[in-house]
């Protein structure tokens, strides 16, 4: 299936990826090619087949409701590009 560059633009916005007009052209072409392979799935008889989300058939384990972590603020902020007074710092969020 060919894909419109408008759709690619929208997808880039959803994915929060700034793309140049050049990249838009490349991605539009490449995604169209890739989606061309995807269309092979149309031949697969999937009616009534249970979707498979997990590689193995197990159930979720549950843990006890116990607090196991202690204050680790400095380690949690150590990799932050910008932080201030124990907080992560980001450009002003306008609500």
């Amino acid at each position: 299936m060919a894909i419109e560059s408008e759709v690619v633009k929208h997808v880039a916005t959803l994915a929060r990826l700034n793309i140049t007009s050049e990249e838009l052209t490349t991605y539009t072409e490449q995604l169209s090619n890739i989606l061309g392979i995807m269309d092979q799935l149309d031949q697969v008889p999937t009616d009534g087949v249970e979707p498979m989300s997990h590689a193995v058939d197990v159930q979720i384990p549950e843990r006890d409701d116990v607090v196991t972590n202690t204050n680790n603020q400095s380690a949690m902020l150590a990799n932050a590009p910008d932080s201030e007074e124990g907080h992560f710092r980001v450009p002003k969020i306008i609500e």
């Binding site: 949690m76 124990g86 907080h87 980001v90 002003k92 969020i93």
Partner: peptide, 12 residues
């Protein structure tokens, strides 16, 4: 947001 100049803070 309040009281922070030119930025917002995030507390997780």
């Amino acid at each position: 947001h309040e009281g922070i100049v030119g930025a917002s803070w995030v507390d997780l």
